[in-house]
Structures are given as structure tokens and as C-alpha cells.
Design a protein around this nucleic acid. Sequence first.
DNA 1: ATCAACCTACCGACCGGTAAGTAAACACGG
DNA 2: CCGTGTTTACTTACCGGTCGGTAGGTTGAT
Lengths: 212, 212
Amino acid sequence: MVPSRSPINQVDVTLSERDPQTRTRLLQSAVQIFDRKGYSAASVREIAEMAGVTKPALYYHFGSKEGLLIAILDAAVHEFARTVSTAVARTGTARERLMALCEDVFNLFEVNIPIVRVAHTVFLGPVEIAPAFDLTKFERIWRESLQQVIEEGQAAGEFRPVPSLDVAYALMGLVDSCVERQMHPGFDPVGRDGLRKIVSLLFDGVSCERRS
Amino acid sequence: MVPSRSPINQVDVTLSERDPQTRTRLLQSAVQIFDRKGYSAASVREIAEMAGVTKPALYYHFGSKEGLLIAILDAAVHEFARTVSTAVARTGTARERLMALCEDVFNLFEVNIPIVRVAHTVFLGPVEIAPAFDLTKFERIWRESLQQVIEEGQAAGEFRPVPSLDVAYALMGLVDSCVERQMHPGFDPVGRDGLRKIVSLLFDGVSCERRS
DNA sequence: ATCAACCTACCGACCGGTAAGTAAACACGG
DNA sequence: CCGTGTTTACTTACCGGTCGGTAGGTTGAT
């Protein structure tokens, strides 16, 4: 398995231009390997080979294995923030906007499952392996956006006056669990329709008679 | 760090009896190390040392690193099944029984967070590291128990006639997300009270006007 | 005498990371 | 337009350390 200038594995390269794609290919390869093997079990050799370069090229661009992971997570958190901020700017009832926000986050995660798995296992996984990167950014961005729309809906008389934080936790839990069901082959995927039905349950309630 | 017969680290041993605690101590040590370092990054040397034995003792009892992991997960799934089956046998309204089931599962997970983290990262983590063990057992046991109570509640006219699977998914998602918030130091823990409030939201609904 | 339950000592493979060399692109004084 | 540092973006070759796993001996109980 010699590192080749024209790697057959995955990303093909137009050839003979020195830099411009190397960094990107390293990032793409790292996401794949981290996804399949996990961060700890992934080897920088394998990542570099898949990208068609050698190990020191990786260290030139990212400094360390952890630097590579942080670069991936950094890009992910920026894309997540972009998705959420555009979703919040929509119009409609608070319920419609919350549903759209949940769907947009679900869609973003669904098309980036490898990155989601990496972030997820790094975040909830072993404490001593955790990189110098604040993964709670994801949670804070999402929670604050949700709470904003929820409180607007309560001010408009659309929602009952329950604590907006609890509603935000509930919505995040529902979306997360739907994403997790997409992540594992042993689960029946719920899909966007399933997500809509489940989130609707939270809005409308399950019990016939309401308490409170 | 010489493996000692009377390990100061964690589990203390009554001393000089040869076998009977070794297997148990290995399991307890493995849970701690897997929790802190993750399965891949954990070393069998370190696990054996913490248990006060040497590596071949571990291989004598469990055959391989993966065998050790499977033994942990096996015990966990049995305790989980026991907890769920006793919780389902309670009396009361369907809502009360579902709430109690969610609380019992939450409590079980809360006092076993290291094992939960190990199972969680192994289950949702890297595909190629996944052991020869069916983690969907957890999901199946829990989902079927929930659906049973939900359908009884619907038959009694206590719940609206929505698909019981959707309600089960929602409840599992809510409980899981509360557990995940307990797992990470960067989150404000929600606790049992938070769980009750969040699950109540699903029963009573958030919107003022119900659709459907 | 047998056997379960370990121990010591060792294996080859692979790990993350680095030192030192090099080819191409670029900067710039003449 | 040319020669010539300087810099960028890598390369080959190597390091000490650790990994999971095992061969074979030892010890105490039955």
C-alpha cells in the first residue's frame, strides 16, 4: 500500500497541482476513517494514504492527530450555526418555524452522518480523549435558537406558558433520537415524516385530558 | 506500576483467596478504563493492573479484549431487562406507569453512567469496532414495554389513538436525551424532576390549540 | 495426579511524531 | 530577462514506545 500521487481510493485529483486540494482531501479522508474506526483506533498513516500523501504532509497542515479532529469539528460547528441561523429567519407560526428548524437540523445531520458520528462519540465518549474543543457550542446555538422561537410563540398566545427551556430540551431530545435512529443500521430509520409525526406529538400531546 | 496482590486502586480485596473475586474485579476495572479512555484506547495491561492481576489472567477469563467488552454488555442488558420488567408490572393509570417506567430507566442509567457511556459509544460509534453483540436488545426490550403500556392506555381511552410506536419513540428520545445531559459535565444536569417535567410536556402538549 | 488459575517473559506489528532532505513556486536585485 | 536566495509543501527514513496476544512454567486445591 504505497502512497500514490493519483489515489484510486475515494477522492480523485486532477494531478500535478501541488497544494490546493491536499488539505481538503486530508479532511475528507479523516472524516471517513474516524467514522469507520473511531478517533482512537484511526491511524494517521491510513488517513494520509487515503488522501494520497504521506504522514508528514498531514502534520504539516494540522500539527497533530488532534489538530485534524479539531479542524473537522470547527468546520462542522460553523456549518451547523449557518443552518440554524437561516432556519430561524423563516416566517410563519411559531409551530411552523420550530418544525422547520427541527427538520433543517435533521436534514443537515442526515446528510453528514459520518461527521455527526465523530462529533457524537467524541462528545459523549471517553473523557480523557476529549480534544481541546468546546462541543457544547452545538447545544448552545441550537438551544438558544429554539428558546427564542418558543418564547415568541408563547408571547403570541400560541403555546402554553411552560418553561421554554423544558420545551427546548424536549425538541432537542426528539430530533437527536431521530438522528440516532438514522445512524445505526440496526434501527428502522424514521425519516423526515417520522420526525414530523413525533414532533407533532409534543405540540398536540398524547393524553386525552390535559393536566396543569 | 507493578501489579500488586492487594491493589490500592479502587476495589479492595479481602486478600489471599485466589479466584473468586478476580473475574468481578476485572469487570469493574474494565468498565472504569473503557469509560475513561474508550474501548479502543483502553489497554488490557492497565485493566489487569487495576484489578491486581496480570494480562494472561484476563485472557484466561475472557479470551480477548472483545470478550471482556461483551461480558460487560451482557450483564448490562440483563440488568436493564430486569429493571424494565419490574417497572412494567406496576399499577396505576397508563400515564403513571409510563412515567414510572421512564423514571426507573433514568435512575438505572444515572447510577451506571460509566456502563451507559461504554454501551452508548460502542453502539453509536465506529462501525468496524462494533463487537459481536446485538445492542438493539436494549432498544427492543424498552420499546416493546413502552408500546404495551401505551396501547393499554389507548384501549382505556386515556390516550389519543396515535400510533403507539411514535409515542414510544418520543418517550425513548426524551429519556435518552435527559440521560445524555447527565453524562456530560458541560451540560446542566436535568435530574429526575427535569425528566418528569419534560415527559409531562409530551402527555399534555405544548400548543394551546390541538390539531388532528 | 490432575486441573484450574494464574504467573513471567516474550513476540511481531503498529502507533504518533520527527529530523533532514528536496522539488517547485515565488521575490527581487541587477 | 535572468540568476539567486527564501519559502512552501511536501518526501524518505527513522525513532522509542505501546499494543493485543501467547508460550510455557508455577502454585495451590481437589
